[in-house]
Design a protein around this nucleic acid. Structure first.
Lengths: 249, 249
DNA sequence: CAAATTCCTGCACAAAAACGCAAAAACCAG
DNA sequence: CTGGTTTTTGCGTTTTTGTGCAGGAATTTG
């Protein structure tokens, strides 16, 4: 088993179960504990996981981590949210993933907007619920604790029954070569289904994540219609994406 | 159980119940009191909690909210929750409705319990998600904003596919004549489906609601297996229900 | 004031991590 | 293909960390 392969497996396990014991990992993959420990160390250095005595934890285990880079990127996300909201019209069916950027959008929805929102993200649903004129449809299935989203074949099947007007994806990594990538296999499956079920696909991302790559591919740039960041549309960082045929706002 | 995991659990409990006894914690998590004490000490050093003799308090407890019957019925619900939890065994499939009593049960689940919880209630799901060893399955469909629960034919169809070991119903009204009744038509449909899909049906209710009636019927007394209240099982108020063949705890 | 908890200190023991080192594997010009 | 370099891996050994236990001190409670 290759090193990269092994680390991807570990990352997947962490994202799935929120915790992982180095002892159980080493018996699963049949390598020494030292190797596991080194892998965990590397993944922790890259900020993918939190290493603790006896194993590792998922980042979202304690929500405290999110508040660290909070206020600054909060503003970025708010401008992204405003741009995204402009795309939603009355009566539309809107499909959304999870993630903090989507959450910011959910919070900023104007109260008079009438639309139907479909999502499997618990935090997003909580926000949608507070709005007076929004119909909310929850995608049901097993819940992945770290991403706080429903995952599994039932969820995917349900999404495929929908034909939404627009789909908003919180994006973990975008790159001109690899397109949209992510680090949780099950979340990727969901996003793929969402893309297929929507007439229009919009990616939301803060500029930090532009030109970065994660292990698992969601889709190529050709499959997305629009990219929304906090930057001005003529920012040079976005040029390659415009050239690739993606609308930018 | 990892140290960080344990501390996260403690913190969650403190924030939820505003107080926590080190003695009860150590029996829940099955570690020595010394370990708990050290954890509390660390959390207190980080300013997360306030450590006191015998346990710890939430930081936000400074405001005296001896408001009304709030705390009182909170205690009733806590004893109900404790009795209900005793019925859940490892590996069980548990179906639950929504409601504050169910929520209290969700909050009090011991961390080492391994089980699968199925529900359509968003607040309940949020609590289940925080537990380290509980698998959570969300019933998806349209969301009823006032009851914060998924309702509709899809949800009912999904529930009917399940065969759960036990089903806990938060109860709005119970009466010897009318049985279980409620006031929301869609919620009633869901509860009916849950009753059908479970081997054992348990009703949770505070004694206030005993011998009261609501407009819509859920089921007769013959369909429920057990009634849990905060009262002692030999309380005269419960006598008619025992006579009707309902177990009481 | 006396009994019962609860708390603190030091200690022992086990589990896990860090470190250095050497063998093995992979990589890479030439 | 080859000889040298780098990377990766596993194995002792040492260090650190986490946990429980025993006693005596401090506190709550009746």
């Amino acid at each position: 088993m290759l090193k990269k392969e092994r680390q991807a497996y570990i990352l997947h396990q962490v994202n799935l179960h929120n915790k992982v014991l180095s002892s159980s990992l080493c018996s699963e993959i049949n390598v020494s504990e030292d190797t596991i420990r080194r892998d965990l160390q590397e993944l922790a250095d890259e900020g993918k996981i939190i290493k603790v005595h006896g194993g590792a934890l998922s980042h979202s285990f304690n929500q405290v981590h999110f508040s660290t880079n909070g206020v600054y990127s909060q503003n970025q996300k708010r401008t992204i949210a405003q741009k995204a909201i402009g795309l939603i019209g009355n009566g539309m069916f809107v499909l959304t993933s999870g993630g903090t950027t989507i959450l910011e959008m959910a919070r900023s929805l104007p109260p008079q907007l009438k639309a139907t929102f479909i999502s499997g993200s618990i935090p997003a649903i909580l926000e949608y619920m507070h709005h007076p004129n929004i119909e909310v449809i929850m995608i049901g299935d097993r819940i992945s604790k770290n991403s706080k989203i429903t995952v599994g074949s039932e969820a995917i099947a349900k999404i495929k029954q929908v034909k939404a007007d627009i789909c908003f994806l919180g994006t973990n990594a975008i790159d001109t070569e690899q397109g949209i990538t992510d680090n949780d296999w099950e979340v990727v499956q969901l996003k793929k289904a969402m893309i297929e079920s929507s007439k229009k696909v919009v990616c939301l991302t803060i500029s930090e994540k532009i030109n970065s790559v994660q292990p698992i591919k969601v889709c190529g740039l050709n499959e997305i219609d629009m990219l929304i960041t906090e930057l001005s549309p003529d920012d040079p960082l976005l040029k390659p994406y415009i050239n690739a045929g993606v609308k930018v706002a």
